[in-house]
Design a binder for these strands. Structure first.
Length: 487
RNA sequence: GGCGUCAUGGUGUAACUGGUUAACACGCCGCCCUCUCAAGGCGGAGAGUUCGGGUUCGAUCCCCGAUGACGCUACCA
């Protein structure tokens, strides 16, 4: 279990493989590591596991960094690239070879594949048969010295079991007989994942390894190496996976899988981080209010304070878009208009919208609109009329409130009434409208609803008179007078 | 197939070392408020804790089995 020493100043890492963008599962793993490090005042390291040269690319690294920056995860050391640390892996491999924990294997990839196929066909487990393990070590060394190609395999003890105390799952144990003599170094001298993680985690002084539960089966192979190197084990903490709505592993089929895609969908970073943190983790009693109700909207400081490995769930979690949207509305509301403005501007840019008006006007509009925004997209979509004269009328809204030609005429008429008025305040605008309604013998609500659509293009908006003030008399008059031409 | 992990309403989670009318949040439904829609307030439906055994005075919780889901099963990570 976790010792006091190891949790005092932990060193943890996020070690993505740049073979794709930062996906939600990876982002959560990164978040948990970051939260853990910050909680204890430890160190968070970023390491790029790019030993698969075929599939790794610098572009993917950039994408991963962009994703991390977006959700606000900063790292203290790195990024370190495994492709630049090959000497370390070679040296570690040499130690393992020298101590008799590893041996050269001359089987070719084709041979192995063929044997595997045969084994599966015969109903036997497709495990490496260990034939090169029987070779004389000095002879093997001589063959390699002469330039023969060979991979280096770890010699797994034939008997016994390998166990560790997982911070999430408790004691986990695998029979050694179930493990095969896995490859440490490929025949081209490039390390496999199994070797490089151990060598790096050791070299970088990792105290905790917090990663996805898909690594549970790899862990005994790593534990064996720690033991062979007489090195102390880090604390392993395996985090359950995130599934799609159909409870299968999250994939493109379920929609967005890259973190940046959520940014593009108008999700605000705090919302995404908040949502992710609560997927497979709960703060327990610490997260409840005085009445015993669970609070869920947490900023990063609070998440850091609350986070602990003990709160990590044991079962996989389903990604729920509705809940993400809820967090998004909560956070958009919680932002100050000043903080929201740059995000809104980015959205305008993405939507090709260049709004008129001053910064002050934009801030005032945001303050009024943020209470009913579900996404940043709203600011370029249904809120478009607040920032530009180039907006469209929502068809359903027009049908609902402006289908009566008489009402449209009255609204145009009322527009002229406003134009002629000397005063234009919220109170005067409302008084004018209500007096006009009474005079014409129609219900004020009819004019209010109709005017709203005429002015904003939407059936949904903040209080009409506040909107009028926000947009200013000139624009209001113009749009109301144009009411007759809508339909 | 083998090995491993997990299993509480539709979803995320709670339920002190076995004793609760199984709680909270999202979503859903209704009502109130009201110029619309959100928000907010109030209320409701929805799980007897995957199933079957066992231990116990008493199991969501402990044990066994089954089932299901997921993971791993590469000279990928």
């Amino acid at each position: 279990m976790m010792s006091e020493v190891s949790s005092a100043k932990p060193r943890v890492r996020f070690a993505p493989s740049p073979t794709g963008y930062l996906h939600v599962g990876g982002a959560r793993t990164a978040l948990f590591n970051w939260l853990f490090a910050r909680h204890f005042g430890g160190t968070f390291i970023l390491r790029i596991e790019d030993t698969d040269f075929e599939r790794s690319s610098e572009e993917m690294v950039e994408g991963i960094l962009e994703g991390m920056r977006w959700i606000g995860l900063d790292w203290d050391e790195g990024p370190f690239y495994q492709s630049k640390r090959l000497d370390l892996y070679r040296a570690t491999a040499d130690r393992l070879l020298a101590s008799g924990h590893a041996y050269y294997c001359f089987c070719t990839k084709d041979e192995l594949e063929q044997r595997r196929a045969e084994a599966t066909a015969a109903g036997r487990p497709p495990k490496y048969d260990g034939r090169c393990r029987k070779l004389d070590a000095s002879e093997s060394a001589a063959r390699v010295a002469k330039g023969e190609q060979a991979a280096l395999r770890f010699a797994v003890p034939p008997d016994g079991a390998t166990a560790w105390d997982d911070a999430v799952f408790g004691k986990l144990e695998f029979q050694n007989s179930e493990l095969e003599d896995f490859v440490l170094l490929r025949s081209d001298g490039i390390p496999t994942y199994h070797l490089s993680v151990v060598a790096d985690d050791l070299d970088m002084g990792m105290t905790h390894v917090i990663r996805g539960a898909d690594h549970i089966s790899n862990t005994p192979k790593q534990v064996l190496q720690y033991q062979a190197l007489s090195a102390p084990l880090p604390v392993f903490a395996h985090v359950p996976l995130i599934l799609g709505e159909d409870k299968t592993r999250l994939s493109k089929r379920h929609g967005a899988t890259s973190v940046i895609a959520y940014k593009d969908m108008g999700i605000v970073p705090e919302a995404f981080r908040n949502f992710l943190a609560l997927l497979g983790w709960a703060p327990g009693a610490a997260g409840k209010d005085a009445e015993g109700k669970a609070r869920e909207v947490f900023g990063s400081d609070e998440l850091i304070k609350l986070f602990s490995l003990e709160g990590i769930s044991h079962s996989n979690a389903v990604f729920d878009n509705d809940k993400l949207t809820w967090f998004n509305t909560e956070w958009i509301r919680a932002y100050s208009p000043e903080k929201l403005l740059p995000l809104v501007e980015e959205e305008w840019k993405a939507a090709g919208l260049s709004p008129s008006g001053t910064r002050e006007e934009h801030l005032a509009a945001i303050a009024l609109l943020q209470l009913r925004a579900r996404s940043l997209k709203d600011f370029s979509g249904s809120f478009r009329g607040y920032f530009s004269d180039d907006f469209e009328y929502d068809a359903a809204a027009v049908t609902k409130f402006l289908s009566d030609a008489n009402v449209r005429a009255l609204i145009a008429d009322l527009g002229s009434r406003y134009d002629a008025a000397t005063e234009f305040t919220e109170a005067s605008a409302e008084a004018t409208l209500r007096a006009f309604a009474q005079e014409k013998g129609v219900k004020a609500g009819v004019l209010i609803n109709g005017s709203r659509v005429a002015i904003t293009g939407q059936a949904v908006a903040p209080s009409l008179f506040a909107v009028m003030l926000l947009l200013g008399k000139e624009r209001v008059v113009r749009r109301m007078r144009a009411a007759e031409t809508i339909a």
